[in-house]
Amino acid sequence: MQAASPRTTQKKPLSVRFKKSIPYYLLLLPGMLLLFLFNYMPIGGIVIAFKDFSPFKGIWGSPWVGLKHFIYFLTNESFWRVMRNTIIINFYQLIFGFPFPIFFALMLNEIASNRFKKAIQTISYLPHFLSWVVVASLVTNVLSPSEGIVNGVLERVFGIEPIYFLTKTEYFRGIIVVSAIWKNFGMNSVYYIASLAGIDTELYEAAAIDGAGRLRQTWHITLPGLRNIIVVLLVLQMGSMITIGFEQIFLLYNSMVYDVGDVISTYTYRLGIVNTQFSLTSAIGVTQSVVNFILVYSANRISRALAGWSLW
C-alpha cells in the first residue's frame, strides 16, 4: 500500500483537518480495532519469549528470564531435528514442486483445442478448493493398508504384503511432497498461464519465418517470457525455506514418522498448545519469524537484482 501523496493543497488548521477526518476514522475503526486485538496484542505478547510465563501470573506478572528459552532450544537436539526436517521437506518441494506448474503451463499452452484447455484448467484448480482435511482424507484412503487401492494393486499384481505407508519413515516425505503438488500445481500454474498469454504472438511468427521450430520457439521466446515470474516466485519460495504449513503435516503425520516428518510448526503446536510450554515455543516462534524476515528480505533483494521486480 502506498503512503498518502503529500498534500499540496492549502494547509488548514489541525483541528479543522481532524474534524473533517472523523468520518474516515469511523470507517477505519472496526478494521483497526480487530487488527489491534488479533495482531498487535499478540505482537506485544512476544515478550513472553523472554519470561517464564504462567497463566496465573499473567503476561506482566511473570518473571523475566532473558534468553534462557532461546539458549535452551538452540542447544536442544529435538529442535535441530525439526529444523532439519523443515528444510529438507522445503528443499524437496523446491526441486519437485516448483518446476511442475511451469511444465504443466507450457504443456497446456500447446494444446490446440481451446475447450479442452479450459476444461483441464478448471479441473486442475479443484484440489486447491478442497481443505487439507479433505485432501488428507483422500491420501489416507488411497494409501490405507486395509482398504486402499495402492495396497490392493501391490497385493494383487506383485503379491506384496500391505504396507502402512503413512507410518514408514522412508515414504513420509515423499507423500507430503506429492500430495502438496497434487493440491497446488493447478493454482500455481495460473501465474505462468497468465504470463504466457501476455507474450507477443508476433514474436512467434517472426521466429517461424526465420525457420525456428516449436521447440526452439519455446526455448528462445516462451521461457525468456516467463523468466521474471519464475525468478519472483522462486525467490519468494526460498524466502519461506523454514516455514511449512501446519495443516498438511499435522493431518498426515503420526508419532512413528516424527523423525522425518515433524516440522517447526507441528513441534511448536505440540510443545506449546498441547504441553503448555508457552514461553519456550514463543521463543522458537520469534526466532522463526526473524529468520523468515531475513530470508524474505534477501530474497526480495535478489529478485530486484535478477528480475528488476520486488515485493516492496
Binding site: 500500500m1 477505519l28 499478540p42 505478547g45 513472553i48
Partner: peptide
C-alpha cells in the same frame, strides 16, 4: 494509519503469543 495496516502483512505474533492473547 496505512502503515498500521500494512505492517500486519509482514509481522505477526506467531502461534503461541496469539493463542495466549
Amino acid at each position: 494509519i496505512s502503515y498500521y495496516f500494512v505492517i500486519t502483512m509482514y509481522f505477526s505474533g506467531g502461534l503461541i503469543p496469539t493463542y495466549i492473547i
